[in-house]
């Protein structure tokens, strides 16, 4: 796999590693805390009572929403760090 290949595009891997991964960790924790106090079933009845969403689907949707939010934040951080680097040095 990515082992003996010549240098391909480490920048892309680095971008993925420093955004996808931390946001994944944080999303795991956030969904734990969030769903411990809020039942996805109650949330569904409050918001979309007409749509059938199981609890498992609720948890999964919640997890991916947290992940997306975290990813957005990580991407912004990468962007901002980059621009400071080019001016400051």
């Amino acid at each position: 796999m990515a082992t003996n290949e010549p240098k391909k595009d480490p920048r892309l891997l680095r971008l993925l590693g420093s955004t996808l991964w931390p946001s994944f960790l944080v999303a795991g924790m956030a969904s734990g805390v969030f769903f411990a106090s809020i039942d996805p079933e109650a949330l569904r009845l409050e918001t979309l009572p007409g749509v059938e969403i199981s609890r498992m689907a609720g948890y999964t949707i919640g997890f991916f929403m947290f992940w997306l939010v975290g990813l957005a934040s990580s991407l912004l951080t990468v962007l901002l760090l980059g621009s400071v680097g080019s001016r400051g040095r």
């Binding site: 990515a2 082992t3 003996n4 290949e5 010549p6 240098k7 391909k8 480490p10 920048r11 891997l13 680095r14 590693g17 420093s18 962007l79 980059g82 621009s83 680097g85 080019s86 040095r89």
Partner: peptide
């Protein structure tokens, strides 16, 4: 645009070995 900026920048400091292709 932003990508191009980033590429130029990365050439600037090549000291970052993060996620560099490695010897297994």
């Amino acid at each position: 645009m932003a990508q191009k900026d980033k590429q130029n920048q990365d050439k600037g400091h090549s000291s970052h070995e993060m996620y560099a292709a490695r010897e297994k």
